[in-house]
């Protein structure tokens, strides 16, 4: 348990610093890379909680697929460097105010509920087996079949939408040229 705590502390330090690095880096590519590191750290958190499937999915989907596409778009557009000055002068104070409100709310809830709510229990080692994977699949395809299918239909709609948006009409292209 003690070694888990040390790993957790180090990882949370990495997670927070990469998140800050993502926010403050002036180069979009570096921002994206910090975000990748952040995703990988989150994946290790999942491993720490005994959820290898979620951890691997996190790396494959977020760090592997989505962020590569992000990088791809940043590079293709040549949008690496942000403008040196802020385009919206009122944005910074507003953001600071809102984040302060959020922090106060979070701290208040943490202290008001911490005494009554049960402390978070980490799942035991028995979950870290092949059976857990099977159970998860069973749950996913029995109890949560409808949300699962709805999610996939949403993704399909988004995909079709993207294709429609980028598709050039044959006649239109001929007419304009």
């Amino acid at each position: 348990m003690n070694s888990d705590l040390i790993v957790f502390l180090v990882l949370s330090l990495v997670a927070v610093s990469t998140a800050l690095g993502m926010l403050f880096s002036r180069n979009a590519v570096y921002s994206a890379l910090f975000l990748v590191l952040n995703f990988v750290t989150v994946a290790v958190f999942y491993l720490l909680l005994g959820a290898p499937f979620i951890a691997m999915s996190q790396i494959t989907v977020y760090a592997g697929a989505i962020m590569v596409l992000f990088l791809f778009v940043i590079m293709l557009l040549g949008a690496e460097n942000l403008a040196p000055s802020e385009s919206l002068p009122w944005q910074k104070p507003l953001a600071a105010l809102l984040s302060a409100v959020l922090a106060v709310e979070a701290i208040y809830l943490l202290f008001s509920r911490a005494s009554t709510a049960r402390s978070v229990v980490s799942p035991d080692a028995s979950l870290n087996t092949i059976e857990s994977l099977r159970e998860m699949a069973m749950d996913l395809f029995n109890h949560f079949l409808l949300p699962f299918e709805i999610t996939s239909i949403l993704l399909l709609v988004a995909m079709v939408g993207a294709i429609v948006l980028t598709r050039q009409d044959k006649g239109e292209a001929n007419g304009s040229s």
Binding site: P52, F53, M56, S57, I59, T60, A63, G64, N128, T129, I130, L133
Partner: peptide, 10 residues
């Protein structure tokens, strides 16, 4: 790993 194939993928 019980999710070895997924590890390969990631």
């Amino acid at each position: 790993l019980n999710v070895g194939v997924l590890y390969l993928m990631s």
